[in-house]
């Protein structure tokens, strides 16, 4: 089990062939109070970099991109009732969707936690 990060502030936690995707704590902090989240439908096929989900704060609307290619196996239904989960637990219960990877080698281009921390520190 390992966690990767994108330059667009998504995280992806990989377990075997499946993975869970969300936005980072840094991202939720930048967005501010989240008031709406829309997750992808189960069965949707995503290519790496596709717009997979939408997150809106009081301030702004943002797209969440899929860090990898694959098929969506689950969307986090809890977010429709309580989008503030993204604020309170961005890298835990506030996950967006689960996906079965079609091309695990795509993970090679992503950052590990230390690299992401350095990336954010330089912003």
């Amino acid at each position: 089990m390992s966690r990767y990060f994108t330059r667009e502030h998504e995280w992806i936690e990989v377990t075997g062939n499946g993975a869970t995707v969300g936005i980072t704590d840094y991202a939720q902090h930048q967005l501010g109070d989240i008031v709406f989240a829309e997750v992808p439908a189960v069965g949707r096929t995503l290519a790496k970099g596709d717009e997979a989900a939408v997150v809106e704060s009081v301030k702004a609307a943002s797209d969440v991109y899929s860090p990898v290619s694959g098929t969506v196996t689950e969307g986090n239904e809890a977010l429709s009732d309580d989008p503030s989960l993204v604020n309170s637990a961005a890298e835990g219960d506030g996950w967006f969707f689960r996906i079965d990877l079609t091309n695990p080698s795509e993970l090679d281009g992503l950052m590990d936690e230390d690299a992401y921390k350095s990336f954010v520190a330089a912003l």
Binding site: E8, H9, E10, I23, A27, V55, E56, S57, V58, K59, A60, A61, S62, D63, V64, Y65
Partner: peptide
């Protein structure tokens, strides 16, 4: 993730 709309009139 990337911002598509800045809803605050401040930023806009």
């Amino acid at each position: 993730m990337s911002e598509i709309v800045d809803g605050t009139h401040a930023g806009a």
